[in-house]
Amino acid sequence: MTDTTSAGAAATAVAPGGKALLEVDDVTLKFGGLTALNGVSFEIREGEILGLIGPNGAGKTTCFNVMTGVYQPTSGQVRFEGEPLTGRKRHKITRLGIARTFQNIRLFRTMTVKENVMVGADARHKTSVLGALFRLPLHRREEHEGSQLAQELLDFVGVKVDADELAGNLSYGDQRRLEIARAMATKPRLLCLDEPAAGFNPSEKQRLMELIRKVRDQGYTVLLIEHDMKLVMGVTDRIVVLEFGKKIAEGTPEEIRNNPAVVAAYLGVETDEVGEAVEHGGTDAIDAVVSGDAADVVDHHHHNEEEGTDAS
């Protein structure tokens, strides 16, 4: 079932062999004695959709946070268009052209839908107090641009509520889409989506996949962190797999699908049902995960694992 869509994506995967937009170069990050990332290197090429996957606790979100300047790497470097990001303030990194969404939605809940998007647009704007107090031409131009962009982006991501509604009153799905619109309003060169499908049902996921492709077709480069294998396989051009803070594989969805190390990482030590699937061979195992109940089993297992570590 998935094959038609994923095959389409795989076909285009060859095309965007653009130059590297963001390079993660031998990044290591340590928290106290814990090594969260260990010598991770990969690059995101212009115009592609790169998937970053791995079991829970593999360091995906940490890696993401290093890329967006939340954490400073212990060693190594992240470069954006050749410029190192190390030591830059977070809001300046956004202005360079990296925008993100949040795994646990973080909208400005008491602001309207439109204002949320305009905050994103404001990242590129310059007006300050005097411009606002006296409604100088620059202020008016920027307000107009922001307001118009907000409406267009809301239409684009498919948030169909009144733009003056408070963001906190939106449905869950609309909140996720609004986050994407807000990030896009900064007009980033690289759009990072952190588990955008979390909590979505299959039909919503399908629509999200369409949206992500559409975003890429607008000319954005997309980094996608996702749990859902079906979604990742279906939409990405290339995939980087992390496990225990290390990169264990990189390649097209097809390659990743057949990579024994990945299969082992995802399924090797899993519950019995999945273990059975592994015996049938890697591809099947992934397919089992992709296409059905096994995915839930794995998910559940991961969630339990996560809670276990939190509580300790």
Binding site: R106, V119, V129, G131, H139, E143
Partner: peptide, 28 residues
Amino acid sequence: RLKESRVGRAWEATREDEDAAEIMGVAT
């Protein structure tokens, strides 16, 4: 006028979620 401008939005965003605001490019 101030409230309905980039400045007012930056304040409100910062008040709502300082980290998210910073990451959205607001010099909080």
